[in-house]
Simulated scan of single mutants.
Amino acid sequence: MHALWVWAHPHASSLNGRLREIGTTALTEAGWSVDELDLYREGFDPLLVEVGGADVRRDQERLRAADLLVMQFPLWWYSTPAILKGWIDRVFESGFAFDVPDPETGKPLKYGTGGLAGKRALTVVTAGDRSATLGPRGISGDIEDVLWPLLHGTFWYTGMDPLRPHLVTEANDVSPETMARLEADLTGRLENVMSEQRIGYRHMCDEHYDHTIKLHDSVAPGEVGLSAHREG
């Protein structure tokens, strides 16, 4: 198995840097080959001015080769750092990640199918706040809702299987004991990354959605918001 580990943090000596070392080592020791894409150190240009470019083609090939995509980043203003957003903007191009036609109907494949179907996608996210604030009743919103644009609107939209985020909270105050636990948690998570259940987003199909791409009244009746688009 082959993984592409995309890392977006300005400081290699940070907690994020240590988690990257632990994660890539865990995959390697489990028999994976790992391609590390360090956006800051590689000097990736995040500005989308013209489509394509040699750097885009290179990274598309790196993504195409991966069975697993890991995106690691600190949560800044409830989103990804700008350099990672720019990487997505430039690399996930039309015809590569989306707007890929269904060979039978000619319609674009999306939401569960698409140019990146068959891959799994895991986010490794650090946040300075406490875990409860990013939980189901937390003031910041549940982490899966906070990252909806990435998990559902990017990963699932392009056909990848999104996995629940691997969230590390209170990242600004990590004791040696806590660090040991974080290392064990991430290692254990990666050992089973290809067998764990994906987030249960609904496929965009006639069974679930009408021609306006709105849920049928019979699907999740009375339920509104993001959770309605999850099975069960």
Score class of each variant (00 low, 15 high):
M1D: 12
A3S: 08
A3P: 08
A3C: 04
L4C: 03
H11N: 13
R20Q: 10
R20T: 08
I22E: 02
G23E: 06
T24V: 07
T25A: 12
T28W: 04
A30E: 07
V34A: 00
D35R: 12
E36K: 13
E36C: 15
D38V: 07
D38S: 06
Y40H: 12
E42P: 06
G43R: 02
F44P: 09
F44K: 03
F44S: 07
D45T: 09
D45Y: 12
L47I: 14
V51N: 15
G52A: 05
D55T: 08
D59K: 06
R62E: 01
R62K: 02
V70G: 03
V70W: 08
M71T: 02
M71N: 05
F73N: 06
P74C: 10
L75D: 05
L75S: 10
W77M: 05
Y78I: 01
S79G: 13
A82M: 13
K85E: 15
W87D: 11
W87G: 12
D89P: 11
R90A: 10
V91S: 01
F92N: 04
E93H: 14
G95S: 13
F98N: 08
P103D: 00
E104W: 08
G106N: 12
G112Y: 00
G115Q: 06
G115I: 02
L116H: 10
L116K: 09
A117H: 14
A121W: 08
L122P: 04
G128E: 11
D129M: 14
A132W: 07
A132G: 00
L134H: 06
L134N: 07
R137H: 12
G138W: 10
G138D: 11
S140K: 12
D142S: 03
V146E: 01
G153Q: 04
T154R: 05
F155L: 05
W156P: 02
W156C: 02
Y157E: 11
T158I: 04
L163V: 00
R164H: 03
H166V: 08
D173P: 01
V174S: 03
S175R: 04
E177G: 12
R181K: 15
R181M: 14
R181V: 14
L182T: 05
E183A: 14
L186H: 00
L186R: 11
L186V: 05
T187H: 00
T187F: 00
R189H: 05
L190R: 04
E191N: 10
V193K: 05
Q197T: 14
R198L: 07
R198W: 09
Y201I: 12
Y201D: 07
R202T: 08
R202E: 01
H203E: 14
H203C: 15
C205F: 07
H208N: 14
H211R: 14
D217N: 15
V219D: 05
G225K: 04
L226A: 04
S227G: 13
A228K: 03
G232K: 01
G232S: 11
